[in-house]
Structures are given as C-alpha cells and as structure tokens.
Design a binder for these strands. Structure first.
Length: 186
DNA sequence: AAGACGGTCAACCGCGTTTTT
DNA sequence: AAAAAACGCGGTTGACCGTCT
C-alpha cells in the first residue's frame, strides 16, 4: 500500500473537498473517494470525518438532558454498543456518545470510589454477562487501580439506572428492542 | 501573569464482519 | 465457494482549551 498519507486535524479545504466528492459519488467506496478527491488521506479517515462531522443532519453541541438519560439507560441495557445506542439518538454519532460516556463515567467513577471504596474492589468478576468481556485491566491513564473499566461502568450503570427508575416516570426501557427505542421519543 | 492540571473532543489504530470480485 | 477488499465498531491517544493555584 502506498504511503499512509496525511494525518491530524482536517482543514476547511479538505472538508470542502470531501463534501464535494461524497455528494458526487455517495457514501461508499471510501478508498475511491479518497483517491478521487485528491486528499492525501486514507479512505478510512475520510469516512470517519464524514460520519462524525460532515454528515448533514448531525447535531452539534452538548447532549440534552433527555439524550443523556437515554445514553445511560441504553448503556445499561446494551453495554458498549455505541453504534447501536447512537441509532436511538438521531443526529448523534457513536464517537460522540462514547466520548460523553467516557467523561461522564470517569467523573462518576471517582465519586463512587470516594463514597464506597469497598464495593468496587470486592467485585471480583462479571456481574453482568452482557457487558463484560475479557476486559483487560485498566490501569492506564492513572486512575484505574487494578479493576477494569467494564467493572467501573457496571457499577455506575447499576447505581445510575436504579436512580433513573425512580426518577423517570415515563417509559422504562429495560425491555427495549431495536424499534422500541423509537418510542422513547414519543 | 505564568504554569500546572483536568476536561473535552477529534482522530487514529487494530480487528472482526460484510460485501464484492 | 474462496479470496480480497471495503466497511464498521470499539478502544485509545493526543491536542486544545478553560480553570485553578
């Protein structure tokens, strides 16, 4: 394969070119799109830029409280299936939701560890088979003293969503199906 | 006023899945 | 039916920006 090409942030000119070419050829054959556009980017990179930023109909700006609630509830049900969750939030991307969740849960994880340090460390292994993978132990960026993000997230989801259940008198989502999530918006 | 720190977001990477040839 | 190419997903990283000390 040829050189990987340009990396890093996109310029306005690159965006404009990409939009132009995608309108011409459609959202497929991204390698072709990359080639035809003359952008020195990979097809993969072009697709990502389009999907996460340039796609018409995308909402920009912070998640609304309603959307935030949805994310929490759907994550409790589906785990880290970001693209699936994103389907229920029109105009939001999986990347956006993932980022939101990550920062949100980090904060919560900190609070949780402060308030009940024993609850996490005593949890040896999966309590929720849906979410838990063979997750590598996270101790990366400094705050994961030996338990996985999955465990942290499980913990948060559990506490968060139980509060939600009391909180939220409207529809409850535990038995949600693919199409059912549409009803959330009703 | 300057530096340190933390939070947020865009982008990259690796890998599994799906589609095309 | 098999192989190759393209796509899509989830995890991770790095840069930027605002706030705090």
């Amino acid at each position: 394969m040829a050189a990987a090409g340009r990396k890093g942030p996109w310029t306005e000119e690159e965006d404009a070119r990409l939009v132009f070419v995608v309108r011409l050829f459609g959202e497929r054959r991204w390698d072709n799109v990359a080639k035809v556009s003359g952008l020195n980017r990979s097809g993969k990179s072009c697709r990502l830029r389009w999907v996460n930023y340039l796609h018409p109909g995308l909402k920009h700006g912070p998640l609304t409280p309603h959307e935030q609630r949805l994310v929490i509830q759907l994550h409790a049900k589906w785990g880290n299936r970001w693209s699936r969750i994103a389907l229920c939030l029109p105009g939001r991307t999986d990347n956006e939701i993932k980022n939101y969740w990550r920062t949100h849960t980090r904060k919560k994880a900190e609070e949780l560890r402060m308030s009940s340090p024993s609850s996490l460390s005593s949890q040896s292994s999966s309590s929720n088979s849906e979410v838990v993978g063979q997750g590598p132990v996270v101790d990366g960026d400094g705050d994961g003293d030996g338990y996985s993000m999955d465990q942290i997230w499980d913990e948060i989801s559990a506490s968060e969503s139980s509060r939600m259940l009391e909180d939220c008198s409207e529809s409850v989502l535990w038995e949600l199906d693919d199409e059912e999530c549409l009803q959330i918006w009703i």
